[in-house]
Design a protein around this nucleic acid. Structure first.
Lengths: 198, 198, 198, 198
DNA sequence: CATGAATGAGTATTCATTCAT
DNA sequence: TATGAATGAATACTCATTCAT
């Protein structure tokens, strides 16, 4: 509780986190310097290391918080969906929409952070996995109640879902093109749900 | 011709390229230094800049050569396939197999290089696009001859193909797990061709 | 009195001193941080500065206490010795034995602390000098009563004593080798008392 | 040869070494920054690391060169001495004289450098040991030809020699007092050669 | 065709210390 | 008597890149 309640955090820490979030809007993480973070936050560089192990640790913290919020929103978005397929559609839409609205985080999550082995040991990645397992559960339920075919592994379905979404997002991210979440969600569902074979 | 014929290349240049290829087997590109490249090649650092604009340029050259070879192999692999779907299956298998056999290049292509804007202006990326267009052509032919449904954009199908393949590869790449190209190809085709709906 | 009676010291202070003593067993002083001292002591860093001017001051305090105890033991060790030479032998043995049993303090005293000018203004060094003067007194007595030759300055004799002892200790300290106090004392006395000339 | 011939060294390297030597005259090594070294040398900081592994490595190099020269002078100084004892006296005088004339190096050698384990793995220390072994040889010869008593280990004699010299030097080094090499040599020889017992 | 000497810009991290409460 | 939040100064080392010869 004290961990999550921002009120209980020392002001300096809050300033640092806010500063990073702000700077990430215009720069990728590697090009942000600790000096810049401190300056923007109005604290000294040293304070960063009082609250975070290192620069990456700080990033992962920001990421975790962000993704945490997303999961909550995502859960809300699928609340109304009755069937497994509708839930999956809602989830895919939530991801696409989030990637589109938070391009900075999308960039970081889909491109920057994956290079570093440390990410996969971070609590931010733990959140990613947590949600991944939730989705796997939905797929399994779909298989059990006969909505989804049972001759492909649930993991394969999840890979196809995320892979397609991410790949569709990547181009627009890289070349800074707009992303039509609705359209991409629709076309992905068509392929994923019913296949491309006529 | 003189560009492609390795025989016509000066020995120093050849040594440098070989050196990079070797070093990439054990290190990711960013952690390789020009000093190391030169040392391994048995030449001086200065020579690198005789033949390449900069370090990245050197990487992109190595990448281009590699991808070039892959395309040739890929083309051969689909020669026997009669239908569009069989061709797509063959292509997917070729990619998966290549990612598995050349994990270093897979890493670089799927993770490292995408961060840098310069990659998307390199001739290595031009090769990637070239092949992408070839595949798009196959999809279109499939649509035209009635093999593939015509209510989804060919680009969407391509995104689903590559996205799924890459996502399936990524985990095994990151966590250094073996990759079963046959199995992943099979399950991807099932989903992609016929959908997950029962 | 209140200075020396540990009972009268505030618990926080005692914890800090104990913490330093403990940490010195495994680390040299410079590599110990105030953060570590506070953590080990279970107090906050700020408290250190309530009781000590700075980190070095803290070290010198610990050193002084240690050396103080040693002097007492040393005095006891020479109580039985009748002649000046026997007293000197007993003192040398006490030093060697102490260096051997308290290697950490030996390191600090013979190596670490001598770099800092501030040490020579500390009360810890005052203790060292005090004992040095006591020993000088013994030498002088020896000269006066005809035991010791009178054509070399007492200071020269003291330098030879300590110099030899320290040099003999240093190697074993640096390379972490065992120290045979008895043997080194014996051989030092032979040389010091009777010379090397046959 | 190319190692030792200063003519064959690149000018930048020579400048760096000269710069360090100069700066050491007024500052102790730790308080000298690489920035300062480079500025004084008129080169960039980076160049330091082309020629030396790190700052300490640079120091050790300077030390080694210095000590090397000293050994040569020392050898010349003992050339005329006929007996082992006379040789030892000449050596002690050479050390004392050198410590007095090169107080900076004396400080470094006797105080600063001994803290660092790395010193004892450096080639500078190898030189120290080399000379130490030479001296040991002289002592052994003295024992063999009956000049020196044979009931104390040669190592003990060496320890007494160096220990006394160093201890005598230390005080004058620390408190910046003049050092009378002749007088200290004389008194040390008296004690060492004939003992303090009347 | 190749060398080798030199550049110069870049930056995260550590730690003792202070001070209001 | 003790906390806890914050400071601020200090610095070695890396590396891609250039260019005269």
């Amino acid at each position: 509780m004290s961990e999550n309640n921002p009120r209980s955090q020392p002001p300096g820490r809050r300033k640092i986190v806010r500063s990073v979030r702000k700077l990430l809007e215009t720069n990728d993480f590697n090009s942000i310097t600790t000096a810049e973070i401190a300056r923007t936050a109005g604290v000294t560089e040293g304070l960063i290391y009082k609250y975070f192990d290192n620069k990456r640790d700080l990033l992962y913290h920001v990421l975790e918080t962000h993704f945490n919020r997303f999961i909550t929103q995502c859960e809300a978005a699928i609340a109304d969906a009755d069937t497994a397929l509708l839930k999956l559609r809602a989830i895919m839409h939530a991801y696409l929409d989030s990637y589109n609205r938070h391009r900075v985080f999308a960039r970081i999550l889909l491109l920057e952070v994956r290079n570093a082995a440390s990410f996969f040991e971070s609590s931010a990645y733990a959140e990613v996995r947590r949600h991944s397992r939730i989705i796997l559960g939905i797929i399994k339920t779909g298989i059990e109640n006969g909505e989804i075919r049972d001759d492909v592994a649930p993991e394969a379905i999840r890979d196809a879902m995320f892979g397609t979404i991410e790949h569709s997002t990547l181009a627009s991210l890289i070349f800074n093109r707009p992303l039509d979440a609705d359209a991409i969600c629709e076309r992905t569902c068509r392929i994923l749900f019913d296949g491309i074979r006529r």
